[in-house]
């Protein structure tokens, strides 16, 4: 009995140490990626190619999701506000929640699921098929050539995708509020303009999604590069990207919101 408890404690301790070791490895990896960004910029073609697969190919989901989130936000806030005779504030609700929360967060979650997992799978597959080792032996640094462009593309694409998400969401909200529920179009825009701050709301939302971009891309490329080079290890790494990525987004969202809006 005592022995089992000792064993359990030992296992717990080892798991904790492993976790910290992983975090350390991931941090060193991030430093290495960052230090290789400069060398990568000499080849903009690599970045453009990655922007395509990370950004353009995620666009459809973002647009569809943004449209429907905006529409449902308008509907819900209409039902809540009409009781107080404040239905003209629907646009304020829609725009504020999109800019501050839903835009950055949902975009990042979708990004982790679509682009993040694809990044992990791609890099992991290159590791499994010894392509990364092969590059090293050809005196080509795979971090500079493979990892850095993918990381940077993720960081650039995220705020752009979030902006598109929010803009489409506002249009979706407009469709429901003005075309469907018959609110006044002028009131819709003027209420939003009166109550939404450029720096505090739009600016902070963009900073949020930039942070999410860094973190999700970091997790995705690290999990791929660090995966166990078997088909099973690859599957686990892809799952970890989505799980850790999503959790990191939600936790960071709270922290950033508290820092930015909680005065």
């Amino acid at each position: 009995m005592v022995e089992t408890i000792l064993n359990r404690t030992q296992m717990l301790g080892r798991a904790t140490l492993d976790g910290f070791a992983r975090l350390g490895r991931a941090s060193l990896f991030l430093l290495e990626v960052l230090s290789n960004l400069g060398g990568m910029l000499k080849r903009p073609g690599l970045l453009i190619k990655q922007l395509f697969s990370v950004g353009v190919q995620t666009l459809i989901i973002i647009v569809v999701a943004g449209l429907f989130v905006g529409m449902v936000m308008a509907l819900q806030s209409y039902y809540a506000l009409v009781d107080f005779g404040a239905e003209n504030s629907v646009s304020v609700m829609v725009v504020l929640s999109l800019l501050r929360e839903l835009g950055p967060v949902i975009t990042a979650l979708l990004f982790a699921g679509r682009a993040g997992s694809a990044l992990t799978a791609e890099i992991g597959l290159m590791k499994t098929t010894e392509q990364l080792s092969g590059m090293e032996m050809m005196a080509v640094n795979p971090i500079e050539r493979i990892v850095a462009p993918r990381f940077l593309a993720g960081v650039i694409a995220m705020p752009l995708l979030a902006a598109i998400f929010s803009a489409v969401g506002v249009m979706g909200g407009y469709l429901v509020a003005v075309e469907l529920l018959g609110l006044d179009a002028g009131a819709f825009w003027s209420q939003a303009q009166e109550n939404v701050e450029l720096i505090d709301d739009l600016g902070n939302g963009m900073i949020k999604s930039l942070v999410f971009g860094v973190v999700v891309s970091w997790i995705a490329v690290f999990e791929g590069y660090d995966c166990i080079p078997t088909s099973e290890g690859l599957g686990q790494a892809t799952t970890r990207t989505v799980v850790y990525g999503s959790l990191a987004i939600l936790v960071l969202d709270f922290v950033l919101t508290a820092l930015m809006f909680g005065k």
């Binding site: 597959l125 010894e130 392509q131 080792s133 050809m138």
Partner: peptide, 30 residues
């Protein structure tokens, strides 16, 4: 390493490049 060649078990060819481009890769790089 530029003066060392290595043949991996799986071949380790870059999957997004054609055969020609794979062989050209180290030449283009260096």
């Amino acid at each position: 390493r530029k003066r060392m060649g290595m043949l991996f078990q799986s071949g380790a060819l870059l999957t997004d490049l054609s055969v020609f481009e794979n062989v050209a890769y180290p030449i283009r790089e260096h």
